[in-house]
Simulated scan of single mutants.
Amino acid sequence: MIRAFAPVLAANGGGAIVNVLSALSWFASPGNGAYGAAKAAAWNTTNGVRLDLAGQGTLIWLGIG
């Protein structure tokens, strides 16, 4: 979804995107290993996109909900 809107945001001088993920993206708990791993991957992917889009003036905020 971020990649789909990135060109629109760049054409308008930048913008902001907020991605709210589960706290399990940072902390593991018994019985939730696969879920936590998937959320950690989503956090890392969003962080990579944040670095990619910084040059076009788009801010990416990672929130934990």
Rank of each mutant, 00 (worst) to 15 (best):
Pro7Lys: 00
Gly57Ala: 09
Gly15Trp: 00
Ser22Glu: 05
Phe5Ile: 11
Trp26Ser: 15
Val20Leu: 06
Thr58Ser: 01
Val49Leu: 08
Asn44Gly: 06
Val20Ile: 13
Ala4Cys: 09
Ile60Arg: 01
Phe5Cys: 07
Thr58Ala: 01
Leu24Ala: 11
Pro30Val: 14
Leu62His: 06
Val18Pro: 06
Tyr35Met: 07
Leu24Val: 12
Ser25Met: 09
Val18Phe: 00
Arg3Ser: 08
Thr58Trp: 00
Gly57Cys: 10
Ser22Tyr: 02
Ser22Asn: 06
Val20Asp: 03
Val49Asp: 04
Val8Met: 01
Ala11Ile: 03
Ala54Met: 10
Ala28Val: 13
Thr46Lys: 00
Asn44Tyr: 07
Val49Trp: 00
Gln56His: 08
Ala34Gln: 13
Gly15Tyr: 00
Ala28Ile: 12
Leu24Lys: 05
Trp43Arg: 15
Val18Cys: 08
Thr45Gly: 11
Gly48Gln: 05
Ala41Cys: 10
Ala4Glu: 10
Ala11Lys: 03
Ile64Gln: 10
Ala42Arg: 08
Arg50Lys: 14
Ile64Thr: 14
Ile2Glu: 07
Gly13Met: 03
Gly14Ser: 06
Asn44Asp: 12
Ala37Glu: 13
Tyr35Arg: 05
Ala54Tyr: 10
Trp26Glu: 15
Ile2Asp: 10
Val49His: 00
Gly13Thr: 04
Ala34Pro: 08
Gly13Ile: 02
Leu24Ile: 13
Gly57Asn: 09
Thr45Leu: 14
Ile64Cys: 09
Ala38Arg: 01
Phe27Ile: 15
Thr58Leu: 02
Leu21Glu: 09
Asn47Gln: 14
Gly15Arg: 02
Gly48His: 04
Gly55Cys: 10
Gly31Pro: 12
Leu53Ala: 03
Val8Cys: 04
Ser22Leu: 03
Ala38Phe: 05
Phe5Gln: 06
Ser29Trp: 00
Gly48Phe: 00
Ala6Tyr: 02
Ala6Met: 06
